[in-house]
Each structure stands twice: as structure tokens, then as C-alpha cells.
Design a protein around this nucleic acid. Sequence first.
DNA 1: TTGAAAGCGCTAACAT
DNA 2: ATGTTAGCGCTTTCAA
Lengths: 346, 346
Amino acid sequence: MENKTKYSISQIAEICGVSKATVSRVINNSPCGVGEATKERVRKVIEELNYRPNALARGVAVSRSRMIGVVVPDVSNFFYPKIIRGISDYLEKKDYSVIVCNSDYNPEKEAQLLMSLVDKRVDGVILCSGISNKAFLEKYRKYQVPLVLLGRTFDSSVSDASITGDNVKGSRKAASYLLRGGNRRIVYVEGNTELSGSKQRLEGYQEALREHGITFDKSLTMSGEYSIEFGRRAAEELLEKKVEFDAIMTGSDLIAIGVISGLLDAGKKIPEEIEVMGFDNIELAEVFRPALSTVSKPHYEMAQHLAKQIIRIIEGEEVGLSHMVVEPTLKLRRTTKERPYDSEYE
Amino acid sequence: MENKTKYSISQIAEICGVSKATVSRVINNSPCGVGEATKERVRKVIEELNYRPNALARGVAVSRSRMIGVVVPDVSNFFYPKIIRGISDYLEKKDYSVIVCNSDYNPEKEAQLLMSLVDKRVDGVILCSGISNKAFLEKYRKYQVPLVLLGRTFDSSVSDASITGDNVKGSRKAASYLLRGGNRRIVYVEGNTELSGSKQRLEGYQEALREHGITFDKSLTMSGEYSIEFGRRAAEELLEKKVEFDAIMTGSDLIAIGVISGLLDAGKKIPEEIEVMGFDNIELAEVFRPALSTVSKPHYEMAQHLAKQIIRIIEGEEVGLSHMVVEPTLKLRRTTKERPYDSEYE
DNA sequence: TTGAAAGCGCTAACAT
DNA sequence: ATGTTAGCGCTTTCAA
């Protein structure tokens, strides 16, 4: 099998009339220098021959690949691209590459991907809204690859760091706002119920109901997946079954958008007849018409923060607060009616 | 430096009382088999010790990394996630990993990324709407990494395969449709003019104008970047400068969405007062309100096709038509008025 | 400042 | 069916 790149370090060494060690030193411009003269000579040869050191080989030599695995449910879900961007932007600066994988909310597939990442000897993995159960993640620790979590918390035993939004608080704020406007029958449309976030959001919704003295009505909740299509279907089903409701709260902006489009197509007025609240505040929320009222968290920054954390861990630096939860805020736009100001809902 | 994974192939071999070669054979279940008994024994040990073969090391041994580099301008631009998904879906089946990079439409950065991918010894790179000039790409060939292009064609010398939409045809269809509705002053808002696609689209626009006997008015064209924000700004500028126009054609759906939002906020009626046409038909186009009329190409499929091609190339199979261009169709929705049926515009 | 040599974890050709 | 050996391209310790 011929080499993909014409030259290897030993060939360069030979051509320069020096040892591999010397070439290696100039490549990595080692502190315990090389004579200026030889350094120049080697550099020139490298340049002329278009020699590029083999990162794979270096990887096996130093047991570091400078690659990070990022697993998300689905890159093409509008929630994730910005997150991936946040991660990439930081990692690129640190000269790490990013391997992106899609788990499709499938635990088996996720497990497989996670294993394939250890095979590839990534220096760490960033798991976004992973659907793996705690048991698997605990087992995964055996492989010694630094693992950080976005959008999910377990007790710290399974991950080295994590960052997530406070789902129950966020969802409580949303529900409270809706309630405060006089809505009484608030439908809650959630995505994939296996995700811990889903349960937390349901909890927040119920808390708010309780605070307002309303009893939880299970028939007002629906669940499916985090997609526009599901939101649409949910709206259609709601209408078809003629369930009574005056507002809809959702588990994600995508669902909300689907819901709205379904409602609008059925001739409903938003927010006059029905108020709708999203969750996440993805970019689309602002652009969509009517602009979406939603629960907001700084995803890009959260992602970057997490990337920073994992690099710290990998490079053996001190990691401060490794498990963070950020409090979401309400971003009110046009799918809800205005209310008198109240600091609690800010 | 201690190993990240506890065991190496030689340790496993030792523990099993066989040679590395044998272990290697069972790992890769080599055709020229291993005795059933030993195979089982080795398997068991591997399982028990959670041994995972080091893909990096294998990579240097066989000169194949089973990684593909994908470079896009920006993952968080809504145009790309679906494309990345198309690529990943195919590559995953073939057991390749995907390294995703963002070039930010910056030629220097793109060049750097491309080089870092050769360092990583990816088995191939898929360049999406790359902004590199032909000269660089030609030089890049020296590094012998299979290169395929999406959304861009050069003569075949610089890439092993490519797939792109027929930009001039697409844009001509769009302009013709607009013209056919009686519009005479059609603004053309384009993104990054350095991209070959931009020039082709402008050409299509001009062709259509010519066909309809209208002289091209440069003051009716604007360019900037492929983003919602730019679209918005363009609309605002148009309004502010009080330029007269009755329709707007854009270089991408994102721009169109920005344009529409700007127009709507200024109280314009779409499509009654102003017709708007997008380009690409990203998922968002359908969901957006008013649903976007646009020029459509099957991105996901195109991406998958290209992924298939690059694997064929890597694995030394015959690649059929390596440079393809697909003809876009008009997807008419609510930002344009209806016209009597005409096969030419289908 | 430089080189020799061993080692990283794996594969593959050749023996047996 | 299995082992021996050399080799992939790099780093790193130790010695000169």
C-alpha cells in the first residue's frame, strides 16, 4: 500500500541528512531547540516537498487524538446547529477537531456511537440531550474518556461536567404567565418523554397549575417528538377531538411552530383566541411569524462553556463549577398577549 | 504516559496465550479464520476486559482513517444541517465518521481547515459551497485526498466528483415566473458574490430579463451574505431609499425570509403588493408564514449521492457520472401570486 | 544541538 | 490454524 502523502518523517530526515528526532523537534518546535541553521534547512525541505506530519501517527505515539466527539439527536433539528457551532468555535481555537454523530433519540444507536468514539480514541465526548440511561453512562466511564453533558444532569457520577437549563423553573414560568392571563385549560404538548428534561418540564407545568389552584388534567397533555410535524399533528388532533383549551404550552419551539401552523391553517387566531408558548428560543423563534413567545436559554454560550470545560478536563486544569444549571427567562413576543409587568415573569 | 484504555492488543494476546496476529484476526474476523475454540476464548477475554481496538493505530497501519472531512460555511446556517445529515446518514452506514468544519466563507480559513484535514489523514473531503479558488484546489490535489464538491463545479481537474443545482436555470425560472406575472422592476438580492453560484444566478436573472425585453438595471441588485439579517437590512434599505420595485428575487431562502420580515414590518402586503421568491427550498420555507415560494433542489438526496460517490472513489470502485448538475424546480407557495399554468415554469 | 533506539497499538506477509 | 517479524509514522528518553 503506497503512502497517501508522499513523505514520512524518516524520509524527510534522510533528505535533510538529520535524524527523525530532529525533524520531529522542528515540526513541534520543541523548546529545547534545534540549531537555527538545521531548523531552517528542515523547514525548507518540508515546505518544498509539501510534507504534512501524520496526526494519526502522532496520536498513537502520544495517546491523544485532538478530536472530540459530539453526539446530538439530530443535526438537522434546528435546535442543534447553533450548539454545534458553539462547541466548534471554541474547539477550533484550541486546535481540536469535532466528530459529529446523530443518535436519533435512539438509546441503542447512541450507545453504539459512544463506543465508536472510544474506538476512535477521541479525547472527550460532549453528549447533547443524550437519551442513554444512567446505567450505560456509568459503564461508559470505564473507558476513561472525559464525558460532559448538555441539557441533562445526572448526579455527577456519570459525567465530568454538565450544563443545562432549569427545566422545571422555565416551564413553571411559562405556565404561570399563561395562567396569569386567565387561561385555565392549558394544553401541554411535549416531545420525547424519555428525556429527563421532558419530565422536569411537566413538573414545572404541574407546579404552576397547583400554585394557581387548578387540578392537573392528564387529558390535556400530549407527547411525541421534538419536531414541527408532531406539533402540527398535535394541533390537528386537538381540533379534531374538539378538546377545549385556551392556550398551548410546548416542550420545544419546533413543536410550537408546528402547533401554530396547524392552528392558523384551521382559522384560529393567535394569540387572540389561543396563546402559544414555545421552549428554547431557537433563532427561528424570532423570525417566525407570528414571532414566538418562548422560554429562553443562551444555548450558544452554554455550548461554548461546556467545550471549554471539557478541554480543561482533558488538559488537566482545574475545572471550577462543573455542574451548572442556568435559569431560563421568558422571551415574550407575539404568540401571547401582553400582561401588566410582573417581575416574577421577567 | 499511561494508556487511555487499559489494554492493548499485545496484552490481550498475552492473556489469551496467543499471538497478536491471532487477536487481530478475531477482531477483524479475518476470512482465513481462527479456530473456533480460540476465537471464542479471545472474544471472551476481550469482552470481559472491555478491550476496544485502537482505530488510530489501525489507521496508521493500514493508511486509512475511516474519517471524512466535511467543510461547510456555517453549520448554523439553516441550509447546511440537512446536507450534513444526508452525508452522515450514508457514511455512518459505511462505518465512516464525519469531521465537520466551518469555513465562515473565509478562503484563508477554508484553506487552513482543508490542510488540517490532510494532517488528520481523512480518507476524503466533501467541500460544500467552498469559497476556495481554483488555484488552491489544484494545489490541494497534491495531497492526494479524494475531494468532492457540493454546490460548485469547476472543470473536473480539481475534484473527483461534484453535484450542484443548475443555478442559472433555477434563477431564470424564478425570474421568468415573476416577469410573467407582470412585474417589471424586480430587485435581485444576492448573498456572497464570491461564490460561483451567485454569479450563475445573476446570469439566469439577466437572461430572463433579456427574454422579456427588459434591460438590466444594476441599481436593482444588492449583495451581502446568506443570512436572514442581511435580507432584513436589504429590505429596509430598499424602502428607505424609496427605490421602486414590484418583486424581489433572492439568492437564498434565508435572505428571502429576512426580506419578507422587513417588508411585513413596514406594512407591505405579500404577495399582493410585492412578490418574493426564495432560493433553495430549505425546510423552513414550507413552515415559514407566509410559506415561501422558492427554487427547489433535493439537497438531502444530493448530499447522500455525493457521500456515496466519495466512498466509491475511496474504495476504488467505478464511479459513474462524477460531475452532476440537477435541474431545480419552482416550488410555488404563498409569497407569489398564482399564474395560469405553464409547463415551462413547472 | 543532535542522534540512536525503543515504544505507541496495530496489520500483514510469510512461515510453520 | 497460528506465530514471527517487520513495518506504519510518529515521540521520547537517554546518551553523546
